[in-house]
């Protein structure tokens, strides 16, 4: 997968750890045919932190809609879920 692929987004999930977070988020993404390319998850000072790199090339909705659906899922699960186009990270961290 290339950095410059315009269809990749970074999803970050931060909050209180509990059973089933990854399952819920992954299920929601699968239903929208969003493919998970990379996933890393850790517990930082008791806070659940997950970073996913996803490909949304075949998603039926636009990224704005994806961001608001994931935010709603986050609210429901008492987590912060953010979807951001991967170009922002590339701009900031790659010369």
């Amino acid at each position: 997968m290339s950095d410059s692929n315009k269809q990749t987004a970074v999803i970050t999930v931060v909050g209180q750890d509990r059973v089933g977070i990854i399952a819920r988020v992954a299920t929601e993404l699968a239903a929208l045919s969003v493919n998970i390319n990379d996933i890393s998850q850790t517990i930082l000072q008791d806070v659940f932190t997950m970073i996913m790199l996803v490909d949304y090339g075949t998603m039926p909705i636009d990224i704005k809609e994806l961001a608001s659906r994931m935010e709603a899922l986050g609210d429901e699960m008492d987590l912060s879920i953010r979807v951001q186009h991967s170009d922002i990270f590339k701009a900031m961290h790659r010369v």
Binding site: T12, L53, Q84, S86, F89
Partner: peptide
């Protein structure tokens, strides 16, 4: 592609 530190730094 990006490491966790970079992503969390941007987020913060």
């Amino acid at each position: 592609m990006f490491n966790d530190f970079e992503i969390l730094e941007t987020l913060s």
